[in-house]
């Protein structure tokens, strides 16, 4: 025993050889899939010339960023990304928490189960299928809106896929449609977990339902709300690519209100083959996104260390 305590960490590590071997495939994958691209971000500072290779290409300093931030796009994609995410976070939070509290009040067990199943369904559908669902409603010639609903209301057909003005509302609706149910179930689990004694005591003290929700339910599920919201704020510089690319049918006319950083990087890389521009936008996203994650986590840690993510 004495000898073991004196042994160096390295000697101790040798005893766990098998455990280290188990780690190899996963760590190797992360090094390739995640860490090599991090190093690869240097291409944002280069003028990539495939004849010279990625490492051999000339350094151009911040030229790519100068070009990027001179375009009007840089402002539009940043604004769209952040505003959409802010709206999604707030509306989702209000809808999901409200539904979760109502679901908890529902006395009928059967219907409660049934609704739990139904609201979760949209979350599991790929954004390609969501694109089909939206298309079946908004298609100019055959959509339910133009062919059935608008004629009922006596309104002229709308060319949905070429009117940028409608899309902030449509995309918000689609996002809430696809994620509010999922968040509702998460908050519902938290509401169910609250000790009934709190409510019994409050009822004895004469508190009504509304006061109980405001003073007991909401404060007690706040840790879950904070963690879920923090995770979303941490990703405020990233968008749901499928929502902005697939659901809009990749329509160029809609870009002023639907272009976000992710779709911009994709289009400039794979449509225009513009490595300089796309890598600059990508690096901008990664770095600012990273700072936002650290900052939001730090802020929460200051307020209540138990609620922070790390």
């Amino acid at each position: 025993m004495k000898a073991m305590a004196n042994g160096s960490t390295l000697k101790r590590a040798m005893k766990f050889k098998m455990l280290y071997i188990m780690l190899i495939p996963g760590i190797a994958y992360l090094l390739i899939n995640n860490y090599v691209p991090m190093l690869g971000m240097i291409i944002a500072f280069k003028d990539i010339n495939f004849a010279k290779g990625i490492l051999g290409s000339d350094w151009v300093g911040f030229k790519n960023f100068e070009y990027l931030f001179k375009t009007a796009d840089a402002y539009i994609i940043t604004r769209n990304t952040i505003l959409y995410n802010l709206v999604f976070i707030v509306v989702n939070l209000v809808v999901a928490v409200a539904l979760a509290i109502l679901l908890n009040e529902m006395k009928n067990r059967f219907f409660s189960r049934f609704y739990q199943s139904v609201v979760l369904l949209p979350y599991l559908i790929s954004s390609v299928i969501i694109g089909y669902l939206v298309f079946s409603l908004l298609s100019a010639e055959t959509g339910l809106m133009n062919k059935t609903i608008l004629p009922w209301l006596g309104i002229d057909p709308v060319m949905w896929y070429s009117e940028p003005g409608f899309w902030p509302y449509i995309l918000t609706f689609v996002k809430i449609w696809s994620t509010a149910g999922y968040l509702c179930i998460i908050y519902f689990a938290a509401v169910v977990g609250i000790d009934q004694e709190y409510y019994e005591a409050a009822t004895l003290d004469g508190a009504n339902k509304f006061q109980q929700i405001l003073k007991i339910t909401i404060p007690l599920i706040t840790p879950v709300i904070v963690i879920m919201t923090l995770m979303q704020i941490g990703r405020i510089f990233y968008s749901d690519f499928g929502l902005f690319y697939q659901v809009t049918l990749d329509s160029g006319v809609l870009l002023p209100t639907t272009n976000v950083i992710d779709t911009y990087v994709y289009r400039s890389l794979l449509r225009n083959g513009d490595i300089g521009m796309s890598s600059a936008a990508g690096l901008y996203q990664s770095v600012v996104g990273f700072i936002i994650i650290l900052a939001s986590n730090y802020a929460v840690k200051k307020i209540n260390p138990d609620n922070s993510l790390f």
């Binding site: 960490t9 101790r12 590590a13 766990f16 455990l19 780690l23 996963g26 760590i27 992360l30 390739i32 899939n33 995640n34 860490y35 090599v36 691209p37 991090m38 190093l39 690869g40 971000m41 291409i43 944002a44 990625i54 992710d262 990087v265 994709y266 890389l269 794979l270 490595i275 796309s278 890598s279 990508g282 690096l283 996203q285 990664s286 996104g289 990273f290 994650i293 650290l294 790390f310």
Partner: peptide, 27 residues
């Protein structure tokens, strides 16, 4: 397990930061 925190950090860090589409695609 010695070094478990270092290894856990290597894994966790990939949740916070990534190289983005362009280097990944080119690689």
């Amino acid at each position: 397990l010695p070094f478990r925190n270092v290894i856990a950090f290597i894994i966790f860090f990939t949740m916070l930061f990534n190289g983005g589409l362009v280097p990944t695609y080119l690689m």
